[in-house]
Structure formats: structure tokens, C-alpha cells
Simulated scan of single mutants.
Amino acid sequence: MKIVIYANSFSPNTGGGERYNLDLANSLNAQGDEVTVITPVRSDSEEKFKFSVIRIPGNKVVSVWKLPKILKGISPDILHISGPTEIDFILPSLAKFLNIPVIMTYHADFPSKLGRLYNSMFGFFQFSIDTVIVQTQSDMNKLLSRMLLPKRIKKLTFNGIDTTMYRKLDDDHERDIDLVFVGRMDKEHSYKGHWNFLKILHKLAQDCGTDLRVYIVGGGEDFSRFREESSKIGIGIQFLKDACNEELIKLLNRAKYLILPSTSNSEGFGRIVLEAMYCGTIPIVSRYAGSHELVYERSCGHIIDPLKIEETSIIICKLIRNYCKESPELSSILRITETEEYSLHWVISRTRELYLEILRRRSDNKAR
């Protein structure tokens, strides 16, 4: 198949959305599909991929007018939009005009007030989209409330983990880090709750003492200021900027708990939760993040309301003090990671099946 992926987030930027798009393109290419990624993300260096990458930097709304010529030239079997994007009001309609089937992965709402208004109008764009993939029931309910037809929504795990990389390195490995936070620190990713997490750390220092071992992994324009502010707390916090996969895996294999302190549902799922679980780390997840559904349904971690600082601090302090390698949560994590349901291989297989289903449906409709 010829697949075009429109990726709002892509390399060289880092984050869950970027990793999803890179994994999707690499995996489809490895299965023999002809993949082209179109992205508005600029790169100042030449990167080598096994698939084609077309970068259209600049204003996304203005650059959309370059897409007809590009799509006509490629003539893809499927356009897969990794969204939502700022050009959803025109890109699916353009594909429909060119008779290209459209599938969209709906990661999360835009965090800004203007973005949320835009999200609320998503139902108006649905008639140019064949299928919208969501990962959680809360996202499905959200889209249904925006008047999307149920037949257009497919609930499917789309955050797949490369289980050959993200895994426990050694069962006897010492868990010498109490808590890890992983997230981009800038205005665009403010929903990840890093400034609110700073307040939680202040309270943790009072409730649990200053001998806690905490690691912060991130990057972005707020990283240096966060580091400076956190130095005033008294906890020995270690920082790792823009960690590569290998560094992150080693770190998660040393950690007892990962915290995802998201302050809004713009977090979406938060794939770092799955990456941590595959490394044997127990997730502490915000009730606002989509992954809280997994944690609740499978009893594989703990749920907090990070906006309740004192309550959250008490919960985390108790968990760290009572950490046990034979905990029920780790048993649940083991059962999950022994299956293929969140593996990259399984996710890509289900995604390709969805592509083929859409193409069959279109073929049947033409035959009638």
C-alpha cells in the first residue's frame, strides 16, 4: 500500500506524538508499504529515514495549499492524519476531493482556549473522514458528544511499545530512584503539569523528608528555570535533558514509580506510562490523563488528582515508604506486559487491518 502520514509532530522534536509517528512510519515501511511523511516540522539537519519525508515549514494554514500537488503526485491508497491538527477543516476535504480514504488518530484535544473551541467543532469535519481512531472510552465519549457518528469512531490501542527495547533489564536490579517525571517543559506542553509538580515536590519535602531520590527527564524552554526553582526545595533532584531511548530505559529500570501529573485531558494517553510499565516501574497517573482508564481497569498503578497538592503528596509519600517488589500492582503489570496487546507489532497489525477494511468498504461501495 501507499501510505501518506500527515504528522503534526515529528522528528527532530521529541515527545509521545513524535515517537508515535516515527514508529508508525518505520513499522509500515518494514512491512513493505510505501510510506511518505508530510510534516510542518522544520529540521536544520539532514536526517536519514527509510521512508520519504516532505517538510512544509511555515504557517500551517497557508502551507495547506501546497498539499494538493503533493498528494496528486503520490496518489496514496490511504491518508493517515495524526491529529487533531490545525488544518483538519480543510485537509480531509481535500483528500475526499482527490478520492483518497482518510483515517485519523485522535491523540488529544488542543490545550488552548481557542483550540478547545476548534475541538468542539470537530463533528463538522467528520464527513470527509472514513475512520477516527481513539484509545480511551473518555475520548470516544468526547467525540460522540461533538456529534460524531458512532460508525466513524474506532476504539483501538494505538500507542504501541517496542518490547525489544522497553523491557526489564534485570529482575534483581536495584530500584534506587523513588520517583521519575518525564515530560516536555514549555508553554505548549503546560498541560503536563510540570509547574504544578513543583508544588507537589515542595510538599513532598515536608511530608517525606529531603532524602527522596527524584529524577526529572525533559527539555524545552522551561527546563532551566524549573531546575533552578527546584534547587530551592532541598531534595536531591537529578536532571536529564533530552534523554535518548537507551538512557530513558536504564533510568526507568532503576525507578520505583513514574509520575504523570497532567493537569488537563490535553495529555491524551501518555505513552510514557506504558514504557515505564514494560520496564517494571509502577505508574502514578493523573485522573485527567487518558491512561488513568488503563490503571483503573487493570489495577496496575495509582490514580491521583495532581491539583490537590496535599492529598497527592500524602499518597506519593505513603507509596514510596511502602514500596514492595511483590506488590499487586507489579503483578498486574507483569500480566499486561506478558501479552501483545500494547506491543508495537500488534498495534501496527491492527492499524494495517483497518486500512484494508476501509479500502474493501470503498471497493464494495463502488461495486454497488
Rank of each mutant, 00 (worst) to 15 (best):
K2H: 09
V4F: 04
I5F: 11
I5K: 11
Y6S: 03
G17A: 13
Y20D: 08
D23R: 05
D23T: 06
L24W: 03
A25W: 04
L28A: 10
L28Q: 03
Q31V: 00
Q31H: 01
G32V: 02
V35A: 08
S43Y: 00
E46M: 11
E46Y: 11
E47G: 02
K50I: 06
F51D: 07
F51H: 13
V61S: 10
K69L: 15
G73N: 15
D77G: 10
I78G: 06
L79K: 04
L79C: 11
S82L: 01
T85W: 02
E86W: 00
I90T: 13
I90A: 15
L91A: 06
P92L: 04
S93L: 13
L94E: 09
K96L: 08
L98T: 02
I100L: 06
Y106A: 10
P111C: 12
K113G: 01
L114I: 13
L114W: 06
G115T: 09
R116I: 04
N119I: 07
F122V: 15
G123F: 00
F125Q: 04
F125R: 03
F127C: 08
I129Q: 07
T131K: 15
V132W: 02
I133N: 13
I133G: 02
M140R: 15
N141V: 02
K142W: 10
L144W: 12
K154M: 13
K154P: 07
K155V: 15
D162M: 05
T163C: 10
L169P: 01
D170G: 02
D172Y: 06
I177V: 13
I177K: 04
V180M: 06
V180K: 04
V182Y: 03
R184A: 08
D186L: 02
E188S: 06
H189T: 14
G193I: 01
W195N: 10
N196G: 09
F197Y: 14
L198G: 05
L201M: 12
H202S: 10
G209M: 00
D211I: 02
L212H: 00
Y215E: 10
V217R: 04
G218Q: 01
G218W: 00
G219S: 07
E228A: 09
E229M: 07
I233K: 06
G236T: 09
I237P: 03
Q238T: 10
F239Y: 15
A243F: 01
L251V: 05
L251D: 05
L252C: 04
L258Q: 03
P261T: 11
P261A: 13
S266G: 15
E267P: 12
E267A: 09
E267R: 02
F269Q: 10
G270F: 03
I272N: 05
I272Q: 03
I272M: 07
V273C: 11
L274W: 11
L274N: 07
G280C: 04
I282E: 11
I282S: 06
Y288M: 09
S291E: 10
H292M: 12
Y296H: 14
E297C: 08
C300F: 01
E310T: 07
S313F: 06
C317W: 08
I320C: 12
N322A: 12
E326A: 12
E329V: 11
I336K: 08
W346T: 11
S349Q: 15
R350M: 13
R352I: 14
L354N: 06
L356C: 07
E357K: 13
I358W: 00
L359P: 05
R362L: 08
S363R: 13
N365T: 11
A367P: 00
